[in-house]
Simulated assay, not measured.
Amino acid sequence: MVKRFYVDQYVDRILAGDRVVLSRAITLAESTLPADQELAQKVIQRLMPHTGNSIRVGITGSPGVGKSAFIETFGNYLVQEQHKKIAVLAIDPSSQRSGGSILGDKTRMASLATNPAAYIRPSPAGKLLGGVARNTREAVLLCEAAGFNVIIIETVGVGQSETVVHSMVDFFLLLLLAGAGDELQGIKKGIVEMADGLAITKADGPNLMKAKQARAEYQQALHLYPPGPAGLAPQVKICSALENTGIADIWEVIAAFVKHTQQTQYFMQKRQEQNLFWLHQAITSGLEERFFSDSGVKAQLDKLRQKVAAGEISPFLAASELLNLT
């Protein structure tokens, strides 16, 4: 049986950079057991003064764009050239169906996974997007308290996961492939509008000229979009994880963006808005959990569902009746 730590033990060891205890604390936060949740929240609250000092970077892209290869090369550059401590987290709501996060197999990022200045944490398998998002948000805070000053959050699933990642990062990077469809037509408009920067991957060998052409086309297409709330138009860069080229350019874009937003106060404003967003998310999920665990609701829910499905009662009246039970 694993020895259970007290709050002080978690706090002291995480602040000392103990990654084993960090992993245990994240596992504690992921637990649905009330006792674990209570302990996890006490630990996080004690660590709050030591959080917020990182650059949080979200990375997304369609399957095949080379996210894992890019993140490994990018992470190694940050560690070796910029002397950063980085943590890589994943948002993967599809893990229950696919059998695990793409980051679950750390051999995909073998050199980064063994680097003492890097920490890779897959999302918990079998959780819905809301649960994974909350776990990742808490993992960000714990990693910051442990001294990691660049937090990379990767979207593995598709759809709403991009929106969730955008709600917890300072810079949102969209990875693209040259020649994969008619440029921006193949990308959901909403994702492009969320992006603070774009990077065309696999810009090497015979793909190099295609990547350069795509960069010009993407940059021209982006002129059709209004500047983002930070007041900066997204830049488009090309890179190759295979040849380790263009990686420094992407970090320069991120660092310049963060510096600009810190000077204009947008950086802190966005962080504050994100904190309030997660407050409302926590309230919503807590109320939903309490509602569905109520004994009165459980007793009536199936019967009312059948009536709604059969058209015997409106969904709104059924909802009202259930809400009045709590």
Rank of each mutant, 00 (worst) to 15 (best):
A25R: 02
A145D: 04
Q82P: 06
Q265T: 15
Q265A: 15
P229K: 10
L176Q: 09
Q306A: 12
A118R: 02
K270P: 10
D170W: 04
G231H: 05
N244C: 15
F316G: 11
Q265P: 12
Q9I: 12
F171H: 13
G17A: 09
F70D: 05
G296V: 08
N53G: 13
V79G: 04
T27P: 06
C143M: 02
S320P: 05
A309C: 11
D12R: 15
Q269R: 14
G104E: 10
A90M: 06
D249N: 08
S161P: 00
S54D: 05
E289T: 13
A16H: 07
S295Y: 09
S68F: 02
V156G: 11
S94D: 08
D105H: 02
T326W: 08
G246I: 03
V20G: 15
L323F: 13
V150C: 09
I247W: 06
E273Y: 00
A221D: 07
V140S: 04
E183A: 14
E288C: 09
S167E: 09
L198H: 05
G286I: 01
W278N: 04
D302V: 11
F5P: 11
G64F: 01
G186N: 11
V132C: 03
I120F: 00
V132D: 00
A40I: 03
L78W: 01
S31A: 07
Q219C: 05
I14Y: 04
S167H: 07
K212E: 13
G228C: 05
F292R: 06
L22T: 05
F257T: 13
Q37K: 14
Q263Y: 12
V132E: 00
A199M: 08
L301D: 04
G130K: 06
Q269I: 11
M109C: 11
S167I: 07
K67F: 04
V2F: 14
A69P: 03
T32G: 12
V150M: 06
L89S: 03
V2K: 13
P49Q: 01
A113Q: 03
R19E: 14
D294Y: 08
L173Y: 10
G205N: 10
L176G: 10
L128C: 15
E273T: 04
W251G: 09
N244S: 15
C143E: 01
F277H: 12
C143N: 06
L242V: 14
D196Y: 06
M268P: 07
F257S: 14
K84C: 09
G186I: 06
Q220I: 11
E321N: 14
A139D: 01
I26H: 02
S23Q: 12
A233Q: 12
I187P: 01
Q272N: 12
Y225M: 13
L222Y: 03
L15V: 00
A282P: 05
E288A: 14
D170I: 08
N76E: 14
V297S: 00
H83F: 13
G61A: 08
T201G: 00
V43D: 05
E243F: 14
F70P: 00
L142N: 01
Q281D: 13
K298P: 05
D170A: 07
V150Y: 03
A178E: 07
K85D: 08
G99H: 03
V88N: 03
C239D: 05
I283S: 05
L103A: 04
F257K: 12
V158Y: 10
T261W: 01
Q45E: 14
S31Q: 06
I151W: 07
M209Y: 13
A178S: 11
T201D: 05
R271V: 11
A90N: 08
R137L: 10
M194F: 12
